[in-house]
């Protein structure tokens, strides 16, 4: 079973990436190739929707770690949603979760991201010189 990668672009800075299928040694490189162009400073927010991801191996984890690192370096937000139990278990084993917010659904993630954005705006208002 292969991997389908869907990229939804909500404005220039906001991407929702949906993974459908298996993220393993065979498919990881394709995913990496696809996601690499998005890992630029312009990207401010990325949501990784893993609702339909049924399998992940260390090769897949590697790519996700890469995304985490790249976006964190650009101060961008990165969240994951809809983790299947088996996927969640793998993430727990390699302790990939503490740094990245995980949500049950896209809506929940949206609310979180909106709140974040508001907070950021408030911060800027409070310190106009910044």
């Amino acid at each position: 079973m292969a991997l389908n990668i869907g990229v939804e672009n909500r404005g220039a800075e906001f991407y929702i990436v949906c993974l459908d299928g298996r993220l393993d040694t065979a498919t990881a490189s394709a995913f990496e190739e696809k996601i690499n162009p998005l890992l630029v400073p312009a990207t401010k927010t990325m949501v990784l929707n893993l609702e339909k991801l049924i399998y992940i191996s260390s090769a897949g984890l590697r790519v996700i770690f890469k995304i985490q690192k790249a976006l964190s370096a650009h101060q961008a937000s990165f969240v994951m949603t809809n983790l299947q139990p088996q996927i969640q278990r793998v993430f727990e084993i390699v302790k990939a979760l503490p740094d990245t917010p995980i949500f049950e659904s896209i809506e929940e993630a949206d609310r979180y991201l909106d709140a974040m954005q508001k907070e950021e705006l408030d911060k800027q208002k409070r310190s106009p010189n910044a």
Binding site: A59, R62, F65, Q68, K69, I93, V94
Partner: peptide, 24 residues
């Protein structure tokens, strides 16, 4: 075993496979 408690910047990207095997 890889240092999984390291910060995001320092934590290894590879070397997780065998760790997963041993855990599973």
């Amino acid at each position: 075993a890889p240092d999984l408690d390291a910060s995001l910047e320092k934590r290894p990207i590879g070397g997780l496979g065998i760790h997963l095997v041993r855990k599973l």
